[in-house]
């Protein structure tokens, strides 16, 4: 086995990657007229917003469930159980984000938008998988 220090290091790396994901763009679409819709953990930003764009923010709180799972991961540095719960829950949350991403991409392509995945989502997936590897490893070590 990889040992407890390495497992904890993986959890920490997962938390750092996840924290970075909270401030970077998750995905974006560029439509005609250079209108760009950027989805982040804490809201949707519309660049070059046209006048007839609907008011309101479609995704202000995607970061909330992820922030909670990240807190569980941090607690998991000392409590093995919390690490497993945090990593599994974060994987579940990423699952929902993944199906939303596929759906949004479909809509964007249909409306001739140029869809792109942001670094935030890459970091979120990498962070989740790294933390999960650490959380699984830490379960096998004596507390």
């Amino acid at each position: 086995m990889i040992g407890r220090p390495t497992a904890v290091a993986l959890i920490v790396a997962g938390v750092v990657l996840t924290a970075t994901a909270m401030v970077l763009p998750w995905y974006s679409t560029v439509y005609a007229g250079n209108v760009e819709v950027v989805v982040r953990a804490w809201g949707t930003q519309v660049v070059n917003k046209p006048g007839d764009w609907p008011a309101g923010d479609l995704s202000p709180w995607y970061g909330l469930p992820v922030a909670l799972t990240a807190v569980l991961l941090v607690a998991g540095i000392w409590i093995n159980r919390a690490a497993l719960a945090g990593a599994a829950a974060q994987l579940g949350a990423v699952g929902i984000t993944a199906v939303l991403l596929i759906s949004e991409r479909g809509h964007a392509v249909e409306q001739q938008g140029d869809f792109a995945i942001g670094y935030g989502l890459v970091f979120l997936v990498a962070g989740t998988l790294t933390a999960l590897a650490g959380a699984l490893a830490v379960q096998r070590e004596p507390a």
């Binding site: 923010d57 479609l58 995704s59 202000p60 709180w61 995607y62 909330l64 469930p65 992820v66 909670l68 799972t69 159980r81 497993l84 719960a85 945090g86 599994a88 829950a89 974060q90 994987l91 579940g92 949350a93 699952g95 929902i96 984000t97 939303l100």
Partner: peptide, 20 residues
Amino acid sequence: YAGAAALAGVTGMLFVYLLN
């Protein structure tokens, strides 16, 4: 335990999306 946590994560993110 991991399955229950995963289901909670799925539900939490879905709830936030729907609420938004």
